[in-house]
Write a protein that binds this DNA or RNA. Structure first.
Length: 520
RNA sequence: GGCCCCAUCGUCUAGAGGCCUAGGACAUCGGAUUUUCAUUCCGGUAACACGGGUUCAAAUCCCGUUGGGGUCACCA
């Protein structure tokens, strides 16, 4: 059997990070078994269909490097892959069910249905369709149709049946069809409903494994019935746990975003957004938030980090393997090792995977990743000169593991800005020590006399000076750093001085000395 | 509320009856290296929801309780 999996997003304008995890599992399973991964667009609900809402979804797949074998743009043997272009298939299947008496035209108005529901609730019994329309004679139906009375097509649930499922992850699950109401499969406007379109397409596209989040488990009962009615071979179902909000068991949902802002684990991601997006010209965070895959791309994560974190959400290889590349995942992924309980999304763990994979990235790629941030922030020109290119490369190399996200380069803006203000608190703290100001003052001419402006020489000069003054080197290094960079953190102080350059360094120290003279 | 699912450190997880004095990772707390920061290295704190069974033996099997969650549309 050829393994064929699919992911069927609705074009909502963004790619949900939890949905991405589901897509990843589908993709990995298909790749692992040499099968195909299909992208199918569920765009049957016109109201939910936003113009150009598909692109962010495709972009998320492209960014992470998850290619689809069949789907939009690539097409394939089961084209088209947009459900809105497959209506004839749903209608044909619906006609068949109607002709075979497995579905019926329901003329009940929505108000009537609602009244039935309310009545059932009042009496404390489970609501089931009253199936009035099934009592209609053929001539009465003809009359209704001729009169243009609106109707929907409902699937006639075989109520005497028990539905059994052997889920690849959950094991045996069963339902009593006698408790299920007849689902609408075609709308009044002739559009199919999700459960029906899904079954028709999964059948037509010969999907072998339906891997999806567990919130679809209740749908599965109906879908199994529908598959049976249509005479389809049942796919294997695998219901993976949903992705929960950090530190909770609740499904991660975009509409709960406001609540997440106060979530301590989630906070770091919102903080990144607040810090970075305004600096790269994205007002209102560019409409991006940590529920969306786009957020991670725009804030400067790399695919390997995100992929590793996603893979470990509800899945593990063994008792110790944490760091996994995409090729490694393909080789080792299995449904058997998917856990059953919901997995809380953990931004901190994501960050640790990110840090690891970022450091694996060749320096040239790290530079390439950082550049757009510097350009958008206006620190380097859009048309990069060779000198700029080399300077950025030198800075990124010096920053080394201090860059975890590409956008982290903006934290070290003192390498790029002419003007900066030292952090008052750090500045005051460093110069609060008696003699520090005087030491720097005495060092100023020594620095001026330095001819060879290299890290090694600067260190040697500084060391000699400190020895002559009878103080430890650290006593001078920190004042030097805060004056030259404005920040108490960063690469080695001499590396910083070299990158900043002689003129700027001396100018900055002079500015600090003026400030100290007037201040205290 | 009906139906369904789930339950091991704060978090992600290992654990298929004896290898469990419950392992790893992230976070956290020390300590060493780095005269900043980050990295790296060592070490510590920290969990089987509860109650009954079954068994010589249960985190692991069964039942119940509690708790959490999903889903109940002419959304997907």
């Amino acid at each position: 059997m050829t393994v064929r999996t699919r992911f069927a997003p609705s074009p909502t304008g963004y790619m949900h990070i939890g949905g991405m995890r589901t897509a990843l599992f589908n993709w990995l399973f298909a790749k692992k078994h040499g099968g195909q991964f299909i992208l199918r667009i569920d765009d049957t609900d016109q109201e939910r269909n936003i113009e150009s809402a598909l692109n962010p979804i495709l972009q998320a797949f492209r960014w992470l490097g998850l290619n689809w074998d069949e789907g939009p743009e690539t097409n394939g043997p089961c084209a088209p892959y947009f459900q809105s272009q497959r209506l004839h298939l749903y209608r044909a299947a619906a006609d068949r069910l109607l002709a075979e008496g497995k579905a019926y035209r329901c003329f009940d108005t929505p108000e009537q249905i609602q009244a039935d529901r309310t009545a059932a609730e009042k009496e404390g019994r489970q609501y089931l369709n009253i199936r009035r329309s099934c009592e209609l004679s053929p001539s009465q139906i003809e009359e209704n149709l001729a009169a243009g009375k609106p109707w929907v097509l409902r699937f006639l649930v075989p109520r005497e049946q028990k539905i059994e499922l052997e889920d690849a992850i959950r094991g045996h699950v069963e339902w009593d069809a006698g408790l299920m109401s007849d689902p609408v499969i075609m709308r009044a406007n002739g559009m199919p409903l999700y459960n029906f379109a899904t079954v028709v397409d999964d059948g037509a596209m010969q999907i072998s494994h339906v891997i999806r989040a567990e919130e679809h488990l209740p749908n599965t009962a109906i879908q199994i019935l529908l598959h049976q009615a249509l005479g389809n071979t049942l796919p294997i179902f695998a219901h993976i746990p949903y992705v929960a909000a950090p530190g909770s068991k609740e499904k991660l949902a975009k509409r709960k975003l406001d609540k997440y802002r106060n979530n301590p684990q989630f906070k770091i991601l919102f903080d990144f957004a607040d810090k970075v997006f305004p600096r790269i010209g994205l007002a209102q965070q560019g409409g991006l938030d940590p529920v969306m895959v786009e957020y991670y791309e725009k804030i400067g994560f790399i695919p390997a980090g995100v992929l590793n974190a996603l893979a470990r959400l509800g899945w593990s290889l063994d008792d110790s393997t944490e760091l996994m590349s995409l090729p490694f995942l393909i080789e080792n992924f299995s449904l058997e090792r998917v856990v059953k309980a919901p997995a809380g999304f953990d931004p901190e763990k994501l960050l640790s995977y990110q840090a690891h994979w970022m450091y694996q990235l060749p320096i040239a790629e790290r530079v390439a990743g950082c550049l757009p941030y510097l350009q958008k922030a206006g620190f380097v020109s859009a048309e990069l000169s060779l000198a700029e290119q080399q300077y950025v490369a030198a800075v990124v190399a010096a920053l080394n593991e201090r860059i975890k996200l590409f956008s982290d380069v903006l934290t070290f803006d003192f390498f790029f800005k002419d003007e900066f203000a030292a952090n008052e608190k750090d500045f005051a703290k460093i110069f609060s020590k008696a003699g520090t100001k005087e030491l720097l003052l005495a060092f100023r001419p020594v620095l001026d006399a330095v001819t060879e402006w290299t890290a090694a020489n600067l260190e040697a000069v500084t060391r000699a000076f400190c020895d002559s003054q009878g103080v430890g080197q650290g006593t001078l290094n920190q004042p030097l750093r805060i004056c030259a960079t404005g920040s108490p953190i960063g690469p080695g102080v001499f590396e910083c001085l070299v990158l900043i350059g002689r003129d700027k360094t001396i100018a900055r120290i002079d500015a600090a000395l003026v400030k100290l003279a007037s201040g205290s």
